[in-house]
Computed example of a mutant assay.
Amino acid sequence: MLSKTLLVALATLFSATPTLAVDCTREGLISAAQSYLAAQIAGSPSTLKLSASNFTYQQNNKVSTIAKSLLSTPYKIDYNRTSADTIDCASYTLWISTAGSKPYVVGTQIRHANNNTAEISMIDTVAATTGDLFFNATKTLDYIRKEDWSPLAASSRPSRDLLKKVGDGYLDMWTDAKAADSIPWGTDCERVEGSQYTNPCGKSLPRGGSSKKNGMRRYVIDEVLGSVDVLCQFDSLGAWPDSHEVRVQEGKVKYVHTITVMKVG
């Protein structure tokens, strides 16, 4: 039989052993995003594995209950794409639905606490529909389907720091006259704002003029795809829920997508 002294020593040893950190994997993030898409198609948020102790649902910058959310209505999804941020353990999913009387273009960030991709701690959605800024889901779908979002070669992937600077620089153009010139624009860059198409991206840019910085910024940065998505509130023009996504290839901006919830009329 083990002596009392030895038992105490063993208990002390095991209690002092650190718990191994769990890695946040790209595969886990994408799998969770796929479960979100499946729940949206079915209109059944109850199928999601949500954190029992710490879950938040936010839609258009307002905390809400998931039972009353967009997820509670089934939608046929015509297009979707997901980027993954293994550092912040988050993903960004774009999906477009053109069917029915209420089409949508949606950007959703999904976050996981403690690198645990088996459970979702936050679903953060910006959802634009008829009446929002430059909204036309069919036109948006047509533009975006033509884009190439293949993973970049490891040798040509932009750094996380560059991607964040590009995302911030874009949102700062409305308040900082020098921000537009800080962005490495590609000569064949394409910009899709709602359904409004501009090529090249660096044409007709704002250069300050507003005193209100675009706030509530939440980032998903994916070096593999060379992308950054920033959900925010577009305070420089109005308190509008907004998603700005930028892709960088060969060190230059290739694509810009915006989803802006602004009711008109």
Rank of each mutant, 00 (worst) to 15 (best):
M1S: 03
S3E: 07
K4E: 00
L6D: 03
L7S: 04
A11M: 09
A11E: 01
T12I: 04
L13Q: 10
L13K: 13
F14D: 02
A16K: 13
A16M: 07
A16C: 05
P18W: 14
T19W: 12
T19E: 00
R26P: 00
E27C: 04
E27M: 06
L29E: 04
S31G: 00
A32E: 04
Y36V: 04
Y36T: 02
L37V: 13
L37W: 11
A38G: 02
A38N: 05
Q40Y: 08
A42E: 04
G43A: 03
G43E: 04
P45Y: 09
K49V: 08
L50N: 06
A52D: 02
A52N: 06
N54Y: 08
Q59R: 13
Q59L: 04
N61H: 07
N61S: 03
V63D: 06
I66Y: 11
A67G: 01
A67C: 00
S69P: 05
T73S: 06
K76Q: 06
D78M: 06
Y79W: 14
T82E: 00
T86N: 08
T86D: 03
I87N: 10
I87G: 02
D88I: 09
C89M: 10
T93E: 01
L94D: 05
I96K: 06
A99Q: 12
G100H: 14
V106L: 08
V106S: 07
G107R: 15
Q109H: 15
Q109D: 05
Q109V: 13
I110L: 10
A113N: 07
N115T: 08
T117V: 05
T117I: 10
S121K: 11
S121E: 02
S121T: 09
M122W: 09
I123Q: 06
T129R: 10
T129N: 02
G131S: 02
F134M: 01
N136I: 03
Y143G: 00
K146R: 11
E147W: 15
W149Y: 12
P151N: 06
P151A: 05
A153H: 10
A154G: 02
P158M: 00
R160K: 05
L163Y: 01
K165Y: 03
G167C: 05
G167A: 03
Y170P: 03
Y170N: 09
L171K: 07
D172L: 09
D172W: 14
T175S: 04
T175F: 09
D176A: 07
S182L: 09
S182D: 07
I183V: 11
W185C: 05
W185S: 07
T187A: 10
C189R: 02
C189L: 07
C189Q: 05
E193R: 15
G194N: 08
S195M: 11
Y197K: 13
T198Q: 07
C201V: 07
L205C: 09
P206V: 11
G209C: 07
S210Q: 14
N214W: 15
N214I: 15
N214D: 13
N214L: 15
L225V: 06
V228L: 05
D229F: 13
C232A: 08
Q233W: 11
S236C: 09
S236I: 08
A239W: 13
E245N: 10
E245F: 13
V246D: 00
R247L: 04
E250Q: 12
K252V: 06
V256D: 00
V256Y: 07
I259Y: 12
I259P: 00
I259G: 01
V261R: 12
V261L: 02
V264K: 15
V264W: 14
G265L: 11
